[in-house]
């Protein structure tokens, strides 16, 4: 054993790998940047081919409008405010459904996660219900609630509640008992343990659930609006279908995917901020 190595030298030796890692990082980032550019090539080529086929008259407008036509329609729909009001209606539905479903999912997960009785009461029915494909409930929802806003919001809420419940419940249960014991020896109260140990410990898994549930929320919205709607993006698309206006349909679809992308990015940002300790 080389006990004669002075502590400073030891520190240098252990510090070396970290320095090397820091040097390597920018190089990897540069390569990633190039790859990002390269990945744009084929989508742009497909877009160009699409435009060429449309301009040549091979791809007719009642099958699929040309990219330029779609762009023009989007500008038009934005100019007269149709797109904004339809989007606002759809966002409103998702927001209400998400808030109701997320609240239910979170509350149930906390009840089941924090107590044995809660688990026995909540978890079995939740596990049974989760196997139901929730889109299959649409006929029942229509029977119960008609075809207004309520069944749409209910469908979204159903879709949101389950992934959030399952992940948050699993997150609470996965909190390491050793941390709870440490909290106990620090004399933390029940509330403090919740705040400092259980909540942050369950957060990573809960955020996974949040991302899943937001994805399901948008999907549920699209399904609900396609089934029946008198306003919103789904109405815009259904109305366009009647007149074979494929350009409007594609604009509607593009807004759907943009909204999905937006919420996903939002959760990613929350993750990066809230889970900074993991890096």
């Amino acid at each position: 054993m080389t006990t004669l190595v002075p502590p400073q030298e030891l520190a240098e030796v252990t510090a070396e790998p970290a320095v090397r890692r820091r040097e390597r990082r920018p190089r990897r980032r540069r390569r990633a940047g190039l790859g990002w550019l390269r990945r744009w090539v084929s989508p742009l080529l497909i877009l160009a081919a699409w435009q060429v086929l449309s301009s040549a008259g091979i791809l007719t407008e009642d099958v699929l409008a040309s990219p330029l036509q779609i762009l023009a329609t989007a500008t038009e729909l934005l100019a007269d405010g149709t797109l904004q009001s339809a989007t606002a209606t759809s966002i409103g539905r998702v927001l209400s459904g998400f808030l109701i479903g997320a609240t239910a999912g979170l509350v149930l997960a906390v009840v089941a996660g924090l107590s044995r009785i809660g688990e026995d009461a909540v978890d079995p029915p939740m596990q049974m219900l989760r196997t139901l494909p929730h889109f299959g409930l649409i006929p029942l929802f229509i029977v119960w609630m008609g075809i207004g806003e309520t069944p749409k919001i209910a469908l979204i809420a159903m879709g949101v509640a389950f992934p959030l419940y399952l992940n948050t419940f699993a997150g609470i249960r996965s909190v390491d008992r050793k941390f709870l014991e440490a909290a106990h020896t620090l004399n933390l109260t029940r509330r403090q343990r919740l705040r400092h140990v259980i909540a942050p410990g369950a957060l990573p898994q809960a955020l996974v659930g949040l991302r899943q549930s937001l994805g399901v929320a948008w999907l549920s919205l699209i399904v609900a609006e396609t089934v029946s709607a008198d306003a919103g993006l789904g109405y815009l698309i259904n109305d366009a279908r009647e007149f074979l206006k494929t350009d409007v349909i594609v604009v509607g679809l593009a807004v759907y995917s943009l909204l999905g992308l937006l919420t996903d990015t939002l959760v990613r940002l929350i993750e990066r901020k809230a889970l900074a300790w993991r890096s």
């Binding site: 440490a182 942050p200 889970l275 300790w277």
Partner: peptide
């Protein structure tokens, strides 16, 4: 008062070093 230092340090990974120490005085 009694305090424990465990075999694994059991620091809360989601709290900074200082917050971990300060947590012992939470009350």
């Amino acid at each position: 008062a009694v305090s424990v230092a465990f075999q694994e340090p059991r620091l809360l990974p989601w709290r900074t070093v200082e917050d971990n120490v300060a947590l012992a005085l939470a009350n």
